[in-house]
């Protein structure tokens, strides 16, 4: 059923110069699921994310979001589809010359005609939703801790209530307790707002805690997709190492 697919990637080839990152890659993200994307460093997880949201132009192939082709869009068309997703970059990418609240207001200013006071209140609402205190709003990103910055970045990604959320390494560099809190937050927001989440990560705990399905990148393609139990039975050596190595086993033990 095609209407259940939120993001459909077909035959995607991306390259930097002569270095091919993806070769005819296919991937589906179902509506309302959290898809974790894993793979060894350098297999192009982040590049895949960039290709889907239009930051990296693919050589060939198409990306469809809600049955709408979004490859090679420009100008107003691009702005329109950008409303469909919010992106949280790896280290937040908050604008350092704006306060946290203003950061969240940026997409609202750009895409809506809300009155200023309401925008402020909504931004505060989003910050509370992401688990930040009201006192964080007037601060600058440089005054926040790493975990708070990530939450602020999440609030900005959610500013326009997009149906799709892209998270690039949401828990990298966080302590395990903060990371676990973030996992719970993502899970809760996903069910409250019925989001579709595309999550790039290295963190086995995050995968176990949040993801419905996992896609493994390798050899320039998606080598396996499926729920975590299914992947544990996969006999690819890298997948075996990943899930059945010491860290993978610890995460499994924590789950049961």
């Amino acid at each position: 059923m095609s209407e259940d697919i939120a993001i459909k990637v077909r035959g995607l080839t991306t390259a930097y110069g002569t270095h091919v990152v993806h070769d005819k890659l296919d991937l589906d993200v179902k509506r309302g699921e959290i898809l974790g994307v894993i793979g060894p460093s350098g297999t192009g997880k982040s590049v895949l994310l960039r290709a889907i949201v239009g930051l990296k132009r693919p050589e060939t192939g198409t990306v469809e979001v809600f049955d709408r082709n979004v490859t090679d869009l420009e100008g107003d068309d691009l702005r329109e589809v950008q409303n469909l997703w919010g992106i949280m970059f790896q280290d937040g990418a908050l604008f350092s010359n704006l306060t946290v609240r203003e950061n969240v207001m940026v997409p609202m200013r750009e895409h809506t005609d809300l009155p200023e006071p309401l925008m402020k209140q909504l931004a505060d609402q989003k910050l509370r939703m992401s688990g930040l205190d009201d006192s964080a709003g007037p601060k600058f990103p440089s005054d926040l801790s790493g975990g708070m910055r990530k939450r602020a970045a999440l609030a900005r990604a959610l500013a326009l209530d997009p149906p799709i959320l892209f998270l690039d390494e949401p828990t990298a560099g966080l302590d395990p307790i903060t990371a676990a809190g973030f996992d719970t937050l993502v899970r809760e927001l996903q069910s409250a707002l019925s989001l579709t989440v595309f999550l790039v990560t290295h963190d086995v705990d995050t995968l176990v805690a949040t993801c419905d399905r996992i896609a493994v990148l390798g050899r320039k393609k998606v080598i396996a997709t499926g729920p975590i139990e299914e992947l544990r039975r996969n006999d690819d050596p890298w997948i075996q190492d990943y899930f059945c190595g010491p860290r993978g086993r610890a995460a499994q033990a924590g789950e049961s």
Binding site: M108, T112, D113, L118, A159, L160
Partner: peptide, 11 residues
């Protein structure tokens, strides 16, 4: 009632 439509009505 979404973020794109409530500009006028909120006032």
């Amino acid at each position: 009632w979404t973020v794109h439509t409530i500009g006028k009505i909120s006032e």
